[in-house]
Design a protein around this nucleic acid. Sequence first.
DNA 1: CAATCCTGATTTTTT
DNA 2: ATCAGGATTG
Length: 733
Amino acid sequence: MSLYDSLNPQQHAAIEALYGPILVLAGAGSGKTRVVTYRIAHLLESGVDPSAILGVTFTNKAAEEMKERVQKLTHYQVLICTFHSLGAKILRESIYALGYGRNFTIYDEQDSEKLVKLCINELAHQQKLDAQHFISLISSAKNALQDPDQINPASLDELEKLFPDVYRLYQAKLKECNAVDFDDLLYLPVKLFKTYPDILDHYQKRWSFLLIDEFQDTNQAQYLLVQHLGSQHQNVCVVGDPDQSIYSWRGANIQNILGFESDFPGAKIIRLEQNYRSRANILEASNALINNNRSRYEKNLWSDRGAGEKIKHFTADTERGEADFVAEKIRYHYENHHISLRQMAVFYRTNAQSRALEDKLLLHHVPYVIVGGISFYQRREIKDILAFLRMVQSGMDFISFSRTINIPKRGIGETTIERIRLSAAQEGLSLMGYSTKLIEDTPLQYAVKLSAKQKEGLKSYVQIIHELKEISKACDIQEVVKAAIERSGYLEYLKGEMESYQERKENLNALVSKAIEWELSAMTPSLEGFLEELSLKSTLDETNSSYDKVHLMTVHNAKGLEFDVAFLAGMEEDLFPHANSRGSLEALEEERRLCYVGMTRAKEYLYLCDVRQRFLWGTTRIQRPSRFLREIPEEYIERIRPSFMSKTQFTWRPSQVETQEVTFIDEIDQTIPEEENEEPLDEGDAIFHKDFGVGVIRQIYEGSAGLTYKVLFSKDNRERSLVARLAHLKKLS
DNA sequence: CAATCCTGATTTTTT
DNA sequence: ATCAGGATTG
C-alpha cells in the first residue's frame, strides 16, 4: 500500500489496528490530522461503509478541514462534525422522547441569559442576583450531568441558595419555548441515551467506528457521549495531547484521557513523538517550558528538521512599540525570505490586545485578518432577522418573540409581552396561536387587554409571520431571508439609527449571501437546517482567505494551526499568564500549556514580545516580563534590542500582495501637500476619514514621523494614530 | 405602560 | 463607544 509508505512506524500502528479502542497521544505537530484521515481511508479500503464512520472534532474549522482531506484522499463523504452539531443531529431525530418538538430552537448565551434573568425575576422578586454567575453554575451543572435535584445545597453559598430553583425553572422555560441551549446539545443526548437504551442501541449500530479529535478538551458530557456510543462495538479511536489541554475553564477534564484506558479496557496506546513541524530550537524551548508543569505525563517530542534560528525575544516600551516591531519583522521576512503573509501569525492572550496591533499593521500597510474576533451572528441586526425566522420555524420561542414583537415599534413593551406569555401558557397555547386568537377576538379565558394601537400592531406582526411561513413553504431559503428583511420593515426601522445604518445593511446583505451559499452546499436545504448551522457557527467563514494576509488571533484560536513565522505578543505577568490564574497552580499550568500551544505553532521563526508599559484595564500599567520567558533556557533565545527602528516605518507596502484594501493602499500613498489641508484641525474636531469614517481628534502631537493626529473613530470605537501629512481628513461641520 | 434619556461598567479564553 | 439597567417623561 504505497499510500501509507510515508508514515512512520507509530503512525502506521495507529492506522493499522482497525478494531478495538485506541488512544493516540499525539504531540504537537506529530501528524495527527494525517493519522486520522489515513485511518478513515484505511477503514473505507477495508470495506467499511462510509455511513458507519463518525468523526468528531472540537471546532467547525477542524471538522471542515478533515472532511475536505478525507474527500480528497478517498472521494467519499464521511460524517465529520463537532460535538455540538452531533448533539443537534441526534436531538433532531430523537428529542421527541424527552418531550420537545423536533423543530426546537438553539439558544446562544445571550438568549439563555435573557431567560435566566426572567427566572431570577420570577423567583427572587426584589433580590438582585448575578445572572452571569447563575448561567455559569447552570453550565457547569449540565457539563457534569447534574439535574436540578442533584445539586448539593451544602455546596452553595448565601447568594446561590436559589440556584436549584432557578435551574429547574430555566429548564422548564426552555422546554416551554421548545428551545435548547448550547450545553443541552451535549447534556440532553446523554440523558436520552441513559433513559432509552433502545435509542442508544440505534445509534450504536449506526456508527460503528468512532474517531475523536482533541480528546484532551472533552468535558464530562462529551466524554459520556463518546462512551455511550462506543461501549458496544468498542471501535473508538481517540486522539489528543494532554499538554495542549486549554479548555478546563469550560469543563474540559484532562482526566478523561486517563479514564479512557479504564473505560475501554485493553485500549492500545500509541505515542506520536516525532514533530514534523518546528525547528529543533523552537521545539526544545517549548519542551523546556512545558516541563515546568508538575502534573504531566512524560513525553519527549523531537524534531529532525535542524536547529533553525533561535527564538527572538524583544522588549518594547509600549504596546505600540511592540506592534511596530511585529510589523517591521513581518516586512523583514516577507522581503528577505519571501514568506507569504498567510504563513505568518500574531497571537495574543486577550482579544483586547488586537487593537494596538491592528492600528500599527494598518499604518504599515500590512494586510491582516482577524481570526475569530467579534462574531458576525451576534450582531443585533442579524439576531433580529434570525429571530423572525425562528418565529416562523417554531411559534413557541418566547425569546425570539419578545425580540421581534416590537420591531418596528408597535407599542408593545415589556409588560404586555410578559402578560401575553403568561396568558398563552395558561391557555395552553403557543405564543403565535394565542396571539392569533387574541386579534381575532376569539373568546378566551385569559385575554390580555390591548389598546387599539397594540392590537393593530399585533395583527400586523402575526400577519408578517404567517406570510413568511407561506413563503418558507414555497420558496428557497434566500427568498425567505430576503422576505423577512423586507416584510418586517426592518430597513426602515434601522434608519432610525443613522450612525450605523450602512454597516448594518451590509451585514444583512451578507446574511442573504450566506443563505444562498448554504442552499448550494447543503444536501437537503431547509430553513431549520440553516438556522441550526448559524447557531452553531460563531464566526462567518473567511471566504476571502485566498488573500494573502497576516493572521491575528488569540492563542486559543491558534490551536491546530501552523505558521512559518509566529509572534507571541504580550508576554507579561498578569497578561500571560493572565491575572486570573494567580494563586492557582492548576490555572497557571493551563496558562503554560496555552503558551506551549502558541509556541509550537511556529515552524521556522518564533518571536516573543513583552512590553514595559501597557494600557490595560483602563490604566497604564508597569508590566513585568512573563515568568514563561524565564522558563525557556537561554540557549534557545536571542534578545533583540530596539535599535532597528528605522525611518522606513511608513513607506513599506507589500508589492505583489493582492489585497482587498487595494484602494486604501493606493490612496494613502499619494502624499498630499500640507497646504491642501486648508482647514486647520484642532483637538476635539470631528473629522471624516476615507477608510475609517467619522471620528474625533483626541490629541495632536509631534510624533517620530511628523505631526500626528490621534483620532477616535466611532465606527469601531478605536483610536488610531494618523500621520498628518498622509491622512485624508475632512473637517466636519 | 412605552419610549426616551441618562448613568456606569466594560477586558480571558469559546463550541 | 456600546450595552444594560434605571429614572423620567408623555
